[in-house]
């Protein structure tokens, strides 16, 4: 079992805490003038997303978490699981609702996503930063308005709803920033 000593602690390190895979967000070395040194660590639980603080005696260790980020192609949703494939090896994994969570509304077949695997099982799925999606429903709006001000809601093929300029019509494809949920441009 691989472990990390407190001297190896740094932001981004993947560790096991209370049976859950976690990532270190912040590591602070504290030591009284004469006495015991500690590492005060901020940790995000990768399953629940919760951030907690924990203190370790300097010199102690944490178990390493077998967590890797890997680029995978989204294939399809069978109603229960979302299936992804490693493009080089054709290896497939199935992500459940917890892992996909909010990302579901951006997932378009064949897009390349970052799937975080823990012991080979998907833990989280991150969509591409920019996705190109078709508008399936939006009010007709006013023709000729190109100011971009105001805007209107539009439902996209994956189910996401974003605000688009009034000139965007049903059936068009647009680019959206998945990090902010904002419309970028017509595709």
């Amino acid at each position: 079992m691989a472990t990390y000593n407190t001297n190896e602690f740094k932001a981004g390190l993947k560790v096991m805490l209370d049976g859950d895979p976690c990532t270190i967000i912040e590591n602070q070395f504290v030591k009284p003038g004469k006495g015991q040194a500690f590492n005060r660590v901020k940790i995000r639980n990768l399953r629940t997303g919760r951030v907690i603080e924990r203190t370790f005696k300097s010199g102690d260790s944490m178990e390493a978490a077998d967590v890797i980020d890997t680029e995978m192609q989204y294939l399809y949703n069978d109603g229960e699981f979302w299936h992804f494939m490693q493009p080089e090896t054709y290896e497939q994994v199935a992500a459940d609702k917890n892992a996909v969570a909010e990302t579901a509304k951006w997932l378009k077949e064949q897009d390349i996503c970052v799937v975080t695997l823990w012991n080979g099982v998907p833990l989280t799925v991150e969509p591409p930063q920019i996705v190109t999606l078709k508008v399936t429903e939006t009010d007709p709006g006013v023709r000729g308005d190109t100011s971009g001000g105001g805007g209107k809601p539009a439902t996209l093929e994956t189910g996401a709803v974003v605000r688009v300029p009034l000139f965007v019509q049903t059936g068009e494809t647009i680019k959206v920033n998945t990090r902010t949920g904002e419309y970028i441009s017509r595709a």
Binding site: K31, P32, G35, Q36, F38, T55, K57
Partner: peptide, 20 residues
Amino acid sequence: RVDGLSRGTLDSWRDLLLTH
């Protein structure tokens, strides 16, 4: 929440509260 102090000395506990 602290790990590794369950068998710590009294001084380790004093140091923990002093620093934290």
